[in-house]
Design a protein around this nucleic acid. Structure first.
Length: 211
DNA sequence: ATCCCGCATT
DNA sequence: AATGCAGGAT
């Protein structure tokens, strides 16, 4: 059975959902919200950010941890996430809070550094790499895995998924970011835990479709 | 595999 | 009352 290439999937997603969005906020806000959104609805992140004003790393490092915890309370896991945000901010201080300086560093090195921070796993690291650091490192989340699984690709681990996307596309962080956003949108609209196959752009080719 | 945590939705 | 949500650590 012929399967769609990564590029073909992308084209169909754009056709279905239109011009993709981008992760909102300053680079530091993007890094912070990537932590806040872990296992949490985006609406909760918006709530915390609205009450926050504009997060700034130097201030976060001066702030008492308890205050930081209260600020991010709506997002849940506040003790762990507050600690993680501090870890990220300390890491960022190593670059003088200078995003261009960080961006001048290689993808591999940045990724290793981020994965070394407690509270940052592969998904969060890749989201930060793409949206804040402008590096092409494909974001693989639960929606992505579920979609590919239902589509019958038969991937057994994230390495295969990464190869599927990264070998079939130009190594362009913008494409990766847009692609991730489209997969997320698709997951929310049709391919969530409980699939809604009515009106799905892939319902004619998807072996996992529910009739 | 299980626990971590707050909130919206059902 | 139960479930689910842009996960991660143990």
């Amino acid at each position: 059975m012929e399967r769609l290439t990564g590029q073909q999937v992308y084209n169909k997603l754009v056709e279905a959902y239109g011009k993709p969005r981008w992760w909102p906020g300053t680079p530091y806000e993007i890094m912070v919200s990537a932590v806040l959104v872990q296992n949490t609805a985006w609406t909760q992140v918006e709530k915390a950010l609205a009450a926050w004003g504009e997060p700034e790393p130097a201030k976060v490092l001066e702030m008492p941890v308890e205050q930081l915890q209260e600020t991010i309370r709506p997002c849940g896991f506040m003790k762990a996430k507050a600690a993680t945000i501090r870890n990220v901010s300390e890491w960022y201080r190593g670059y003088g809070f200078d995003i261009e300086k960080a961006r001048a560093t290689s993808l591999d090195r940045l990724r290793r550094e981020l994965l070394g921070l407690k509270g940052i796993g592969a998904e969060t690291a890749d989201a930060m790499l793409v949206f804040a650091l402008h590096k092409p490192s494909f974001v693989i989340d639960a929606y992505t895995r579920r979609f590919l699984d239902r589509m019958g690709y038969g991937f057994t681990d994230d390495r295969q998924i990464r190869r599927f996307f990264e070998s079939g596309l130009p190594a362009d962080y913008q494409i990766y970011g847009w692609y991730h956003w489209l997969l997320l949108e698709h997951g929310k609209n049709h391919c969530g835990k409980q699939p809604t196959c009515d009106g799905c752009a892939f319902s004619t080719v998807c072996p996992g479709r529910i009739l």
